[in-house]
């Protein structure tokens, strides 16, 4: 599986990572190596096999609907890179 530069750029854009042209080429090669490595999986017959996404076998893990104000609220706001009147401040979205 050989990726094209175009594909790498698209992936990087989805992942929100800015790449230079050199990096695109570097990652293109490295990601291709990884994809090549995993391509062996095709050899395993998985017909009729259901995927597993969790191994614990747990289900219906639910919490009661009780609310409380967090003791960490102020500290979280204090750790915002920028804030204003309790809001998080960022560059304009519009």
């Amino acid at each position: 599986m050989i990726l094209t530069s175009e594909q790498v750029r698209k992936i990087a854009a989805l992942a929100r990572i800015k790449l230079t042209d050199d990096e695109v080429e570097k990652f293109r090669k490295e990601l291709s190596v990884v994809l090549d490595y995993v391509s062996e999986l095709e050899k395993v017959n998985t017909d009729g096999v259901e995927e597993i996404s969790q191994v614990t076998g747990l289900e219906n893990v639910l919490r009661e609907d009780t609310a409380r104000l967090s003791e960490f609220r102020d500290a979280i706001i204090a750790s915002f890179p920028e804030s204003k009147d309790g809001f998080l401040k960022i560059k304009s979205i519009l």
Partner: peptide, 29 residues
């Protein structure tokens, strides 16, 4: 970065079944 991008690719439209889903089936085995 390498892992983020590999994973982004493996989950992206058109590749999910071939990579992620396939892997989780083998994982079951």
């Amino acid at each position: 970065k390498r892992r983020i991008m590999t994973g982004t690719y493996a989950l992206s439209a058109g590749y999910y079944d071939a990579y992620y889903l396939k892997a989780q089936k083998v994982r079951r085995l």
